[in-house]
Amino acid sequence: MSDNSQDISQGGYTTVDGRKIGGVMMEMKNITLRFGGVVAISDISFNIHEGEIRAIIGPNGAGKSSMLNVISGFYNPQEGEVWFHGAKRPNMRPYQVAEQGIARTFQNIALFEGMSVLDNVMTGRLTKMKSGMFAQALWKGKAEQEEFENREVVEKIIDFLEIQAIRKTPVARLPYGLKKRVELARALAAEPKLLLLDEPMAGMNVEEKEDMSRFILDVNDEFGTTIALIEHDMGVVMDLSDRVVVMDYGRKIGDGTPAEVLANQDVIDAYLGVSHD
């Protein structure tokens, strides 16, 4: 079924456009996730290499978001193993995964609606804030220094994503496209090693999609951030991703470069809606 023709081993590889990709950062081994009788993910294995942009595609209900939720610790699979940086990861809570340097955005946007854009992005720094409450109370100087450094990182990201104009705006007032961008900013503020994006361009117009694509490529290029993203727009997937996992009904039906998966008969069938039986 799978056409892992390129057969990328544990080591790195070089992309079509000549970028150097590192070794395996994250490895999903035989993951199965069930909700009662529904099998959202069925025995899926794939890996994510250091520095690559990995896309997960598939029809609605295929289990893509569930997979991202497994990686980020929101769901714990019934079967299978998650390996991160060469070590098997025990079942983890989302906050523990975040502390490991994995940041994410949500399909349905989860922002702090009552806070300004700046405060939202600032919360992305929480994992980087060291001073505990007593240190902050007793040792004001150090806490202030830390606050200053966090502000600097946040301002850099705000400039990078071109949202300076709305820094002080309450998030609730922003249009959808900008909210998606703020959510990305908050995830970036954690300076993650691995960035998970669940449909970062859903509901956007062409222009907004182009902006978002550019940001994603720049993040990967400038910060060297590894990115796993879910996307429905095939054009975008072709442009952005180095390798693609294709899911359908909880199973993996394809894995490889965009060109490879597009030539895969199972993938074509799934997308053309050939009946499953």
Partner: peptide, 19 residues
């Protein structure tokens, strides 16, 4: 900050590393 974040949105709070 974490307290305010939790008060606002649980999912978002989890994703930024809050228990």
């Amino acid at each position: 900050r974490a307290m305010r974040a939790v008060a606002d949105d649980h999912q978002a709070a989890l994703s930024v590393g809050i228990s």
